[in-house]
Nucleic acid binder design. Sequence first.
DNA 1: TTGAAAGCGCTAACAG
DNA 2: CTGTTAGCGCTTTCAA
Lengths: 335, 335
Amino acid sequence: MARMDDVARLAGVSVSTVSHVLNATRAVAPQTRTRVEEAVERLAYRRNDLARSLALRKTRTVGIAIAALSNPYFGELVSALNEALEAQGYTALLGDTGDDPDREVATVERMLDQRVAGLILATAASSGEPVASRVLDQSVPLVLVDRHIDARCDQVVPLNREPVEELVGHLADLGHTRIAAVAGAAGLDTTTERLDGYLATVAARGLDDDPALILRGRSRAQDAEAAARAAFAGPHRPTAVVVLNNAMTIGTLRALRGLGLTVPHDVALVCYDDFEWADLFQPRLTAVRQDLTTMARSAVGLLLSRICGDDRAPVVERITPQLRHRESCGCPAPD
Amino acid sequence: MARMDDVARLAGVSVSTVSHVLNATRAVAPQTRTRVEEAVERLAYRRNDLARSLALRKTRTVGIAIAALSNPYFGELVSALNEALEAQGYTALLGDTGDDPDREVATVERMLDQRVAGLILATAASSGEPVASRVLDQSVPLVLVDRHIDARCDQVVPLNREPVEELVGHLADLGHTRIAAVAGAAGLDTTTERLDGYLATVAARGLDDDPALILRGRSRAQDAEAAARAAFAGPHRPTAVVVLNNAMTIGTLRALRGLGLTVPHDVALVCYDDFEWADLFQPRLTAVRQDLTTMARSAVGLLLSRICGDDRAPVVERITPQLRHRESCGCPAPD
DNA sequence: TTGAAAGCGCTAACAG
DNA sequence: CTGTTAGCGCTTTCAA
């Protein structure tokens, strides 16, 4: 693989001239420039970014550490992040943390060793906190996505409470008074905030506030299935349910089907998080959909401004999800 | 950020000694080693992989260039690839080619500039060929996934023909004789091979070989929808259909629903490619599912052996997908 | 058992 | 307008 001094020799100039024409970093006589360009062409020269980064003491790579890439939700997010980064000339280094704090630390550490210019961390259930401080200690820019942590870094999180209020309010409008909620893992801000939205609406609309209506789905399909099975098997069962993330929606649907209950006939169902192919589910799901593209752009924007030295106070950006009104709520006439 | 000579100074040794204890690359007196380790600890030293790679003239990063990360199928694949790579101490550099040949070239070129140790390319519709030779010209190990190209590199591709034969044979067993096939984009080996499976079974079982039964879905949901709409609107419509990839399954289902046709009552449907949540579709889809984990392991295995200098002739590994027998085929008693 | 020093391929003063 | 040269932070002969 040709190096810069091969080019220099062939063009009959010095390496520094080659460097400068390649980077357009100082004026070069037109003919000199041409000679260099020809030499570059002839040798099919490609610069070594490793050496460049070392000399520059900075890279144009950004680490993306994600909780579980196999989750389509995160897949879409990574896709959007990557696209936004590429548009700015950055390359993404990928890491799957498997939602495991230890692996998360290892992943992030590897990325720091590679001297990433910044880090985007989307870590659902795991602790996050130790990683965040570790990164910030190195004064590497960091933005947290999807997960709100009380830390000294930028964050991009979905709006949680209001959309759930809208969902539950909608069920109430349809006449439901006994509405179950399938809640996520304890300790997550998303869980708390979404549940708050449910509780607030229950209170505001005078709905049944039986604590048994709050099902512990722990953010996972299996737990949600078990919880829903128990709750809907009983005699005095809820007439509607709001499920607070996508994995748990899967579980809840399985439970209902297992019990021979039909949505929305026997039970109305609405959920937080949409599926790409939600309109092929039967019935089509009324859901609230995260705006991943906006989240990604926002995250990358925040990160790059930091990388470029912006030294503002950390911000938390809230992204408003969109309501997809379909049939599982049992509406007489959905969109 | 502390450097190696900071550690050396603190430990009262030379940098070369530090390097050697860090890499366990030559014997070091126990007490010297301890002093170095303490210094590393105290300074929270982390080595600079950029500098290391430059000196070593090799990296432990692998580029993954994927056609469309937003497609859950590829998301799962990337996840599996990344996992397999991490297990071997490699880090993944991510690139989305958007299934656009130009972008593909740009992506791969950026990766080569970063001196990736190898490349995994999963490029569905785009040409691939120019990229492959570009990479191989640099003698960087390359493995193609999911797409079979007649090139001089290792490849991991799904078995296409036989599973389709199985699918169509199953429909024939159920008594169908007029079976449509929704075919993918022309020119792709997957399209050709899957279609061959269909044609072979049609011939072998003496089914209706009306050419109008072959619908041009072009590998995309929209085209498949249009083609299916036309084919199933007519009077002498097929009683069953085999759809040859997941995007087209979406389109076909939409078309059938739009026409008021019920699966499997009015039309039996089977398809190549499964969905993670296929058992929530109504009806549950009888499908053939790619074994992404096996594909990923296989790809990474091939790549790493090349990286380690193995110089065998290029191989093509065929991965057998698994049949998921559910309800859309109209079977009296699925599993 | 350890250290000195010459690279790895590039950038950027500094000098001309 | 261009070249010389000293790094960037690490590995690895070679010599002690």
